[in-house]
Design a protein around this nucleic acid. Structure first.
Lengths: 109, 109
DNA sequence: GTTTTCGATTATGATTGCCGATATGGACCA
DNA sequence: TGGTCCATATCGGCAATCATAATCGAAAAC
């Protein structure tokens, strides 16, 4: 395996893994609601601890790009739980990414 | 397909695609020498135009991380062509990434 | 019924990465 | 000697990442 996992993993995460998780998030949002904190926990469960300061802006950016839309109960204040869903445009992006991942995977075979 | 391809693609590239190309570069370096300019051309051939200001620092970073090592003919001055090769540590990283890509691909079915 | 804890998002400040453009430099040719 | 390739290096501005702290409503505990 990879030695000095912690420091190595941090470098690898920032350099590459985070983007794979972004794809995972899009995929996930296509199958059910995505909630920031739930994702943080899920990824932690997979041994990957993402900072909230990375994840939340990322979700906001994806919404701004039109890949996700969010629903929040406004009666629960400005920090209510927010559920993110994949938009049609997000689905196109995901389909495009799916092809890329397929190509990459076949190449690495 | 994706509308307003140029702007959309720039966003998508920065957000996600670049990391997939990084994996591609590592894989490539495992099969033969990688040279910055050659990569720029190859990727341009695939419709992805990466900035030299992105690629060259990226290769340097991968070398600094111990994933790649470079060979340059010193008699050809400081801007000689540099050939990058995958190191054993880089091979471990690549193998790790291969598993991640596999998982992601299977998940996306 | 007040105080604590919990689930969740948002804000902040430092560091790092990305990008377009420009600079540098050797080799080959005329 | 000058020009054109082939290549890498670097710069300044902007955007993303990170660890951490702040905020907020609801539920639990006392």
């Amino acid at each position: 395996m990879i030695a000095d996992m912690d420091q190595e993993m941090k470098i690898l995460s920032r350099e590459i893994l985070l983007s794979l998780w972004k794809i995972h998030i899009l995929h996930h949002a296509g199958e059910g609601p995505v909630v920031g904190m739930w994702m943080l926990k899920e990824l932690r469960g997979h041994g990957y601890d993402l900072s909230p300061g990375t994840l939340y802006p990322l979700l906001q950016r994806m919404e701004r790009n039109g890949w996700l839309r969010s629903e929040a109960d406004p009666s629960r204040g400005p920090r209510s739980i927010k559920k993110y869903y994949l938009t049609p445009k997000g689905r196109e992006v995901l389909e495009f990414l799916r092809e890329r991942v397929k190509t990459l995977w076949e190449e690495m075979g």
